[in-house]
Design a protein around this nucleic acid. Structure first.
Lengths: 129, 129
DNA sequence: CAGATGTGATACCTTTTGGTATCGCATCAA
DNA sequence: TTGATGCGATACCAAAAGGTATCACATCTG
């Protein structure tokens, strides 16, 4: 029977996802990333979003639900329609997570990061985390 | 027969993924994000990574393959072992993609972004509503 | 009112993901 | 040489993801 087709993955039914988990899950799909770019220009109903892609409204609706679960958009009932609006602060969860690695990919920042590390722990880098 | 269990998803067999697609796909899993943090501290063999988690080596190996496909790590054969090393520049693909939205979530940057937009397109740009 | 329309909710399908267990091979150590 | 040990490679499984089609319902509009 597979307890089939429940609306949420197990790890999200009942408890909350970490903010960066929701954000990264939502960002993993290219269609959803495109939707975000469109919503950054203007709020849109489901039908308006669906018109921009080659998939059905149902598929777009599912993408929007995942974006909403990831706190990347908010949805406002507006008469018969529902307006999807970018919630840009949600992306900050992903940006913040990634910022940990800034020192590693930017050579200029790397030098700075090492200076800061040295200053913060003049003895050694023990167990960070 | 389902052409079952091919090593790569269809969109990656044959052609290349966009850099941000590979990065975001890899980042979508919490175990992989943790692996990246560990690798930022030191290079590790598969067995060493697997010891940090409660899953089998096989599962960790699959995660490392996805991280490698996303250009987030590189793997160097070292005798009988294989050393997995963070490739931090790969994360820049995700950071770059997200930077488009900086102006939306940081109010201080928003003002700056609008100034820049205005300066860059004092004439056109009236396509939003 | 009656019809058109935007949406929600299902049911169902295929593919991908994340996991296990297992086998075989190369390489290191005794 | 003979084991141990890291890994690669499969085969297999359950669940999640991404999609379609369809129906019901609320809400606009003539």
């Amino acid at each position: 029977m597979r307890a089939s087709r429940l609306p949420f993955p197990k790890f999200f039914r009942g408890t909350a996802m970490s903010p960066e988990q929701g954000a990264f899950r939502a960002l993993a799909d290219p269609t959803r990333r495109e939707i975000l770019k469109h919503l950054s220009r203007s709020d849109m109903t489901i039908a308006e979003v669906a018109d921009l892609f080659d998939v059905t409204r149902g598929a777009i609706k599912k993408h929007l639900v995942i974006l909403e679960q990831g706190q990347l958009i908010s949805v406002e009932a507006k008469g018969r329609e529902r307006l999807n609006r970018l919630r840009p602060h949600g992306l900050k969860a992903a940006t913040d997570w990634l910022s940990y690695f800034d020192r590693f990919w930017d050579d200029k920042l790397a030098a700075l990061g090492q200076v800061i590390d040295a200053a913060n722990s003049t003895k050694k880098d023990n167990d960070n985390e």
